[in-house]
């Protein structure tokens, strides 16, 4: 088992000062993001507590990645406010970024670098010392089964390998909040299982995960809370604990036995026939 999220103290002294479970660590108030005339996120308000695995769902183009972009400093909000770990993102973005980890849409890898160089670069940028950096890079590459591709630039990696590298880069500094955009897409089942286990250990330590995914079964099994966004607005938010106990969840006065049923209710079922099929 990898020691990336082990309980051992961090030799670089960068172990997160985890918030108490239940403290609000992500607070979005009336967030709006426009691209020209298009409103990608519309007056969105949301709170996420420490020690929770939050699934942020929505159909394609609903505004999930734009929301994560605003939360992580990739995009500047048009209106509204964001507080992470109790601090306003603007103007404290540099201090806050030190305490969060992000796996963004498109992964944002430097394709000319090799995996160890890329991971070491990220670790150093987040303030890890050289010794810790080397240890964690070696450990992550071993755990992610990437040691056979040390000499190859990232542009030659497969989609799954690239995703593993991006995930490793997002956790290498042991952040307090982890933002993951479609973390399991393209990754092989054994690595997916390992990553899920890491995330469970991570939230058990009081840290928080905010992730998007289109794989509803995974979200249902992994996440504590879910938010569903549709046309840039938050359409539903709630806990999933009832589902794991064989119960159901309520929305608009109706009860749903699965997350998929709820999602289809909100996003709309699409049953169209093709004339030639």
């Amino acid at each position: 088992m990898s020691a990336v999220f082990s309980d051992a103290t961090n030799p670089a002294g960068d172990a997160p000062e985890a918030k108490r479970k239940g403290d609000c660590v992500i607070r979005i108030e009336r967030l709006t993001k426009k691209f020209g005339r298009i409103t990608a996120v519309d007056d969105l308000s949301l709170e996420v507590s420490a020690g929770r695995l939050f699934g942020f769902l929505g159909p394609n183009g609903a505004g999930k990645s734009t929301t994560i972009g605003c939360l992580t400093g990739l995009l500047d909000p048009t209106a509204g406010s964001i507080r992470l770990l109790g601090e306003a993102l603007i103007p404290h973005s540099v201090e806050i970024k030190r305490r969060i980890g992000v796996m963004p849409e498109g992964l944002a890898l430097f394709d000319q670098l090799r995996a160890p160089e890329f991971l070491a670069f990220n670790a150093r940028m987040f303030g890890l010392d050289e010794k810790t950096t080397r240890g964690r890079v070696e450990e992550l590459l071993e755990a992610m089964d990437l040691k056979s591709a040390l000499q190859r630039p990232l542009r030659e990696f497969s989609a799954g390998m690239r995703k593993k590298v991006a995930f490793a880069a997002s956790i290498i500094h042991h952040p307090e909040i982890l933002f993951l955009d479609e973390p399991f897409e393209s990754i092989d089942p054994s690595a997916t299982a390992m990553m899920k286990e890491w995330l469970r250990r991570y939230v058990a330590q009081g840290c928080t995960v905010f992730m998007t995914s289109h794989v509803l079964e995974t979200v249902e099994r992994l996440c504590d809370d879910v938010g569903i966004i549709h046309f840039g607005k938050l359409a539903w938010r709630g806990e999933l604990k009832n589902l794991s106990g064989g119960g159901d969840i309520e929305c608009d006065g109706r009860r749903f036995a699965t997350l998929e049923a709820l999602f289809l209710h909100i996003a709309g079922e699409q049953h169209r026939r093709l004339s030639w099929l």
Partner: peptide, 16 residues
């Protein structure tokens, strides 16, 4: 220009 998609990473790093 040489960074391609990697340019987005600078925005998530804790540096100006």
């Amino acid at each position: 220009g040489l960074d391609g998609q990697g340019i987005r990473r600078y925005s998530i790093l804790p540096v100006p």
